[in-house]
Amino acid sequence: MSPTKLGFGILWPAFWTGLPFKLAFAVLFLAFGIVHFETRIALAFLMLLASPVTVFAVPTITLALGSNIGEGPGIALLFLLAIPIDIWSLGIVGRTFFLERLRREPPGGLGLTLWWKCALVGAIYVPILWVAQGVITEAAITGAYSILEADALRGIPVAEGISIKLTLWSTVATVALMVLLVIGFSLAGRMIRRTVQSAGHAPENYQGLIVRWDLMRVPLDQGWMLTALSGAAVVLSVLFWFSLPVFTPHPHDCCKKPEVMAEPPFKPLETLNKNEKMIAHLAAQVELLVEQRAKSELEKEQSKGKGKEGTETVEAPDATKPAAPTAVNQ
């Protein structure tokens, strides 16, 4: 079997097998608000879908290449949780593939073996794919624009121009992506081939093999598995209920909710003391003002006699009447 068929035949089902579990966590994290996606949500979805190969590539892409697929600690957590999910899904898909398509006996720990192989290939290849695709797309866009800038095609109206440019560069970019993906699956297939070659032949006939991988999906202790899953559903639901924001995280201008400020705690003794102190302070201030007024009036009379020399009239702070304590917290 060609390495591309091998790689694709194992990775494609494994991606989709793990997806439901990863999505459940993704929704929960979105509800908790620990992860945010902006315009790159489609890319984030693809990265998460292909987590068996992207799990170690995403940090490289994010840190070294400076482009992120989303914000928040939830992203790292999602990829971390994806690891055991992927090991399980690669295990079940790998065993099925070995039995049905390769007619070989799947070795023990197949899931883990497949996982580290795919993760390794991905860690090296996915950033290369990312960069290559980026370069090719940019070149295609620039090329398409320059073709339409040429004099012969200058007269083309806006709408037609958009579609033509889009067709030109997207065709190039899509073909490039297909080629890069095929190379990637082929590389993964090559890594996996060694495991295949060391595996023994499976003894059953075709029907026997089908029955075997089909029944492989039925756990030995159904009751335990189903109870555990139901329990997980209950736990996740309760977490969801707890975390789901009651009001919209993107309110319209019309109806923004006022910021809820915690009421300052009501401490009666303190308030009384504060009030007493304030009253005493204010009383003192009033006395001071009265004194100052008396002084300034005296000085005015004196300066009237002396003339305009010397003394500056002290501006009595009339404007700042001490505010009566009206709004005391009851």
């Binding site: 459940a24 029907q207 089908i210 029955v211 089909d214 029944l215 039925v218 756990p219 159904q222 189903l226 899953l229 139901s230 559903a233 209950v234 996740l236 639901s237 969801f240 209920w241």
Partner: peptide, 28 residues
């Protein structure tokens, strides 16, 4: 051949209900 295993049928039937729980319960 695949349908002869009663345990298998029972398991997938019950797994269907549990998956349904994952859909319905969060909405309650």
């Amino acid at each position: 051949e695949l349908e002869r295993n009663v345990k298998r049928r029972a398991f997938f039937a019950n797994l269907t209900y549990v998956t349904g729980l994952f859909i319905g319960l969060p909405l309650v």
